[in-house]
Computed example of a mutant assay.
Amino acid sequence: MPNRQSHTLRRGRYSEAGRLYLLTTVTHQRESLFHDFQHARLVIHQLRHCEREHICHSLAWVVMPDPIHWLVELKTEPLGQAMRRFKARSSLSLHNVGLHSQRIWQAGYHDRALRREEDVVRVARYIVANPVRAGLVKSVREYPHWDAVWL
């Protein structure tokens, strides 16, 4: 049974510019929408668009068949607003290529604020290694939908 009060979990939380966040969001009913190369690339375009608009600085990300893992430094917008903007734009892009009657994203997302002293490169490596751990590829080099500023 879905948690009808899940929106209340965000009450009292705030985000701050300059803080690093590890974000995870998943497709509606965990449908593997991003097995399709074009769909994955449209979502990647929207990740990069957030950076071009100075909403955040992307440090690492991977687009898996149903979740997205994204390490960002927040810039100009609160985290909730940035995620709503990303999800709305990526949904619109996907609807424009034929996913008209489908919900794209599950409501909400998971976030974890990182401390500056944490090993951020280790977190980035963990993110981009997700396709290997999921058994999609044997090496990260074989997977086309990831990026990290250090790797």
Results as ranks from 00 to 15, higher is better:
17 A>M: 01
17 A>L: 00
17 A>R: 05
21 Y>K: 09
23 L>S: 10
26 V>T: 15
26 V>A: 12
26 V>D: 06
28 H>K: 14
31 E>M: 11
31 E>D: 08
32 S>L: 14
32 S>P: 08
32 S>D: 14
33 L>N: 00
34 F>L: 10
34 F>A: 12
36 D>F: 05
38 Q>L: 11
38 Q>W: 07
39 H>K: 15
40 A>C: 08
40 A>H: 11
42 L>G: 07
43 V>C: 09
44 I>L: 00
44 I>H: 01
45 H>Y: 12
46 Q>I: 01
47 L>S: 05
48 R>P: 02
49 H>D: 13
52 R>A: 12
55 I>P: 03
57 H>N: 09
58 S>V: 14
58 S>H: 03
61 W>K: 06
62 V>G: 08
63 V>C: 10
63 V>D: 10
63 V>K: 10
64 M>G: 06
68 I>T: 00
69 H>T: 07
69 H>G: 05
69 H>S: 08
69 H>R: 13
71 L>W: 01
71 L>F: 03
73 E>L: 09
74 L>E: 00
74 L>S: 00
74 L>C: 00
75 K>V: 08
75 K>G: 07
75 K>F: 05
75 K>D: 13
76 T>P: 03
77 E>P: 00
77 E>T: 06
77 E>L: 15
80 G>V: 08
82 A>K: 02
82 A>R: 01
83 M>A: 05
84 R>T: 11
84 R>E: 14
85 R>W: 12
85 R>L: 12
86 F>D: 03
86 F>G: 01
87 K>W: 01
88 A>S: 13
90 S>H: 01
92 L>H: 11
92 L>T: 13
95 H>N: 04
96 N>C: 07
96 N>A: 14
98 G>H: 06
98 G>Y: 07
98 G>P: 03
99 L>Q: 05
